[in-house]
Simulated assay, not measured.
Amino acid sequence: MTKAKFTKADMDAVSDSPELTAKDIAAARPFAEVFPEMAAKMRSTRGPQKTPTKVSTTIRLSPEVIAHFKAGGAGWQARIDAALKEWVATH
């Protein structure tokens, strides 16, 4: 993947936004105030679990363990959880 290189001329050709003045800045309002519905959609989260099945915690693991599970891509934390469950079941 090559990084695009834009010249000042390129930027000037597509930039039609004037510099903001002190008056413009003083009149600015927060995005959420100007577009409340759009802002609400953007900040929506999953919300609380209906039946929590996991507990949030902090654990320190060796870099090799983290690298191994992250190498498998997305879901690496769930794979660590599954490996620990398997270990608990056999011990």
Rank of each mutant, 00 (worst) to 15 (best):
K41P: 01
D10S: 06
A27Q: 08
V88W: 00
H68E: 06
R46E: 01
K85A: 11
S15N: 15
A28C: 08
Q77F: 05
R79Y: 01
D10W: 09
S15T: 15
A67V: 02
G72V: 00
A89W: 05
M42Y: 06
M11A: 05
A71N: 04
K50E: 01
F35L: 09
K8W: 04
F69I: 02
V14D: 02
K41A: 13
R46W: 03
I59K: 03
Q77L: 15
L84C: 14
A82G: 06
S15Y: 00
P63G: 15
V55C: 11
T21I: 01
R43V: 10
K70A: 00
A89D: 15
L20P: 00
M11S: 02
F6Q: 12
Q77R: 15
T57H: 09
A74G: 07
A74I: 08
T45E: 04
A83C: 06
G72I: 00
K5A: 11
R46D: 03
M11K: 10
K50G: 03
A28R: 13
R79I: 04
A89M: 14
T58A: 07
R60E: 06
E64P: 02
P30C: 01
T51N: 13
F6A: 13
A32M: 01
M42P: 02
M42E: 05
A9T: 07
R29T: 02
K50R: 12
W87D: 10
R43M: 09
K8Y: 07
G72C: 00
G72R: 10
I80W: 01
P30A: 11
T7N: 03
T51Q: 07
H68C: 04
A78N: 14
T58C: 05
